[in-house]
Design a protein around this nucleic acid. Structure first.
Length: 632
DNA sequence: ATTAGGG
DNA sequence: CCCTAAT
């Protein structure tokens, strides 16, 4: 949105946009095994404000990289029609990676391309509802031609050219923004990119170097950058050869099992440098650490901000950033984490919330055992032996944070005994999903897909309610209830059961605090005026459909606080000594609104007073109806 | 599931 | 905000 001067933001318009947006797209998350599950609220929450929150200013360009990171690692957008196409089709949408850019300012999807796992490009061309003029352009992946052309792909000149016409347009429009992002967010290494690279920017990607056998080691940085651009459809300024090579290789092979150096790519398979042995294992520890160190050296002091390349951050650096504060008693956890992320079966990225809480506890984390099972392959299925990993300590949670077995997308992981706050994920289905046939991997896809489909209706209902918030699935308070799925009292359920013991959870997890904006308060007041205090559910549905994070309880609490403010703040102001540390950062609720609150409160409580004594009767029987009428 | 109220 | 009790 644009910084609203004076009046309200054009909400209806925004609502339309997002509504339409959500009508066509759905956030899903790529689980470790490549299956898709609906994005959790946590996931979506991170970026929800980009789409609706009034108080958040326009995401600055440097946020673009952030978004990209998010989408590329956490969630993807899928066109709903694709999802509804039936499970057979769905199976082909076994997405491995994808990237998309969003012009947040105009809510225009400018680029979206998805690399399907079988190198099949899912076409998502679509436009949002006409008035929005949202266009989705695709950057065809070079590997598409190559793979679809059968085996060895030479002389795809025609295809390449036809393709490039498409992508050129996109690249022009998109890379511009990308460049802005890069320029803004790169503190170091901002030395103007090498001439040829910048020249490439607006030209057609040159896929030639990608054809056939490529020995990345032979390429110069510039060539690598070009290759990168050809593959990923955008420019990079990263000059780290190793990183570039890895990225390119990953892009070419659609795999994350890429050593950091010394490999030849042929036919989209990684071949050892000698051309004989195929490298398929995990990245070696040394390689990983080298990469890690490199990241830190190259981008020092770059922590919070997005570095030059969103890729850079989103993949490699991300891992270093995320775990660098984790105490390293041994290298295992970190290595495992890294391997985890770089492996095909990568686990889902911890959510922002998780990270926050993790950083909270790691200060005194004595175990440091966030050990994700290093080889958490699909057939591991440790998760079905819950008793195998019970909770080490239940009492001393104040100092020791035992890990517990958690399950993420069908995988079993150890996570600190906190932040078991999965919001938005349909637990019931999830359990049944896990419960179903864990040992059959390929079933996972179907199950997950089925789950999505089954959930589709319900979710759409939720989504439909949120005119302004397309991203979030409405989930009251995110409480963890013990098992409710009919009869699914398996051990998995027990895990949740124990995990949800309030004694343990209490105080350790908290809903993300969201300050009430003025407009929210006004909406609340209006809602109370319309439907009456106490009809929180109604108010929430009708007046807060766009703020799905405001539950009815929240409304109630806020109203209560408003009443209190009415009783304290208001008279105090009149008396003249209210100052209370006039904190400029805290915008006080305008007295006019408070007056209205007071008025409404009195009205309502008086209405009840006929049957029951008034609750508040201190100083209110005088002013009453006459003041804040300038509002409604 | 929603509401009210205490913390 | 969280939690619980009571509807």
């Amino acid at each position: 949105m644009i910084t609203h001067s004076g009046g309200r933001t054009p909400e209806p318009c925004r609502a339309m946009i997002t509504e339409s947006f959500e009508k066509h797209f759905k956030f899903v998350q790529v689980e470790g095994d490549g299956t898709l599950v609906p994005a959790t609220e946590d996931d979506v929450l991170q970026f929800e404000h980009f789409f609706h929150d009034e108080k958040v200013d326009l995401p600055s360009v440097e946020d673009v990289g952030h978004v990209e990171e998010f989408f590329s690692n956490e969630c993807i957008l899928l066109k709903k029609s694709d999802l509804e196409g039936g499970s057979s089709k769905l199976k082909t949408i076994e997405l491995n990676t994808q990237k998309l850019g969003i012009d947040l300012e105009s809510m225009q999807l400018k680029k979206m391309h998805i690399i399907a796992q079988e190198n099949r490009l899912q076409s998502l061309d679509d436009s949002l509802s006409p008035p929005l003029k949202c266009t989705v352009v695709h950057v065809q992946q070079p590997d598409k031609f190559l793979t679809e052309q059968g085996d060895n792909n030479i002389a795809q000149q025609d295809n390449a050219s036809t393709e490039t016409t498409k992508s050129t347009v996109l690249n022009d429009s998109f890379s511009a923004e990308k460049d802005k992002a890069d320029a803004c967010s790169r503190p170091v290494d901002d030395t103007s990119t090498e001439p040829s690279v910048s020249g490439v920017n607006s030209s057609v990607p040159d896929f030639s170097i990608l054809r056939g056998e490529v020995c990345l080691d032979d390429l110069t940085i510039r060539e690598l950058q070009e290759a990168f651009r050809a593959i990923f459809g955008r420019q990079t300024t990263v000059k780290d050869k190793i990183w570039l090579k890895r990225r390119i290789t990953m892009g070419l092979t659609n795999s994350c099992d890429v050593p950091s150096s010394g490999c030849v790519v042929k036919d989209y398979k990684i071949i050892g440098k000698d051309g004989k042995q195929e490298i398929s294992g995990e990245i070696t520890k040394i390689g990983l650490q080298a990469t890690l160190v490199r990241d830190q050296v190259i981008y020092p002091g770059n922590e919070g901000d997005s570095p030059s390349s969103s890729y850079y951050q989103s993949e490699d650096q991300q891992s270093s950033k995320r775990f660098k504060r984790v105490p390293l008693h041994n290298d295992e956890p970190q290595e495992n984490h890294l391997a985890e992320q770089c492996t095909n079966k990568r686990t889902r990225k911890p959510t922002k919330r998780y990270i926050e809480e993790l950083s909270d506890i790691e200060a005194h984390d004595s175990t440091g055992n966030l050990s994700l099972p290093a080889k958490r392959t699909a057939h591991d299925e440790v998760l079905l032996k819950p008793r195998a990993a019970p909770f080490h300590e239940l009492e001393s949670l104040s100092t020791i944070y035992p890990t517990r077995k958690d399950t993420l997308g069908g995988f079993s992981v150890h996570v600190p005994y906190v932040s078991r706050m999965r919001r938005g994920r349909p637990r019931k289905d999830f359990i049944s999903f896990v419960d179903k046939e864990p040992s059959v991997d390929h079933n996972g896809v179907q199950t997950a897909v089925g789950m999505m489909l089954a959930k589709e209706g319900e979710e759409r209902n939720h989504v439909r309610k949120a005119s302004e918030v397309p991203l979030m699935v409405n989930s009251e308070r995110g409480r963890i209830e013990a098992v409710d799925s009919k009869g699914v009292q398996n051990l998995q359920a027990n895990v949740y059961n124990v995990a949800s013991k309030p004694k343990i959870k209490r105080g350790l997890t908290r809903k993300h605090h969201r300050a009430w904006t003025l407009s929210e308060v006004m909406k609340l007041v209006d809602g109370v005026a319309q439907y009456g205090a106490g009809k929180w559910s109604e108010i929430r549905k009708l007046s807060f459909s766009s703020y799905s994070y405001r539950t009815s309880v929240d409304l109630k609490d806020k109203w209560r606080n408003l009443i209190r403010a009415t009783q304290t703040q208001l008279p105090a102001q009149k008396d003249g000594f209210c100052p209370r540390k006039t904190n400029p950062s805290i915008i006080p609720i305008p007295p006019s609104i408070l007056l209205r609150v007071k008025e409404l409160n009195e009205l309502q409580s008086q209405g009840d007073a006929f049957t029951a004594p008034v609750k508040f009767n201190g100083q209110n029987s005088k002013i009453v109806q006459g003041k804040g009428s300038g509002f409604l």
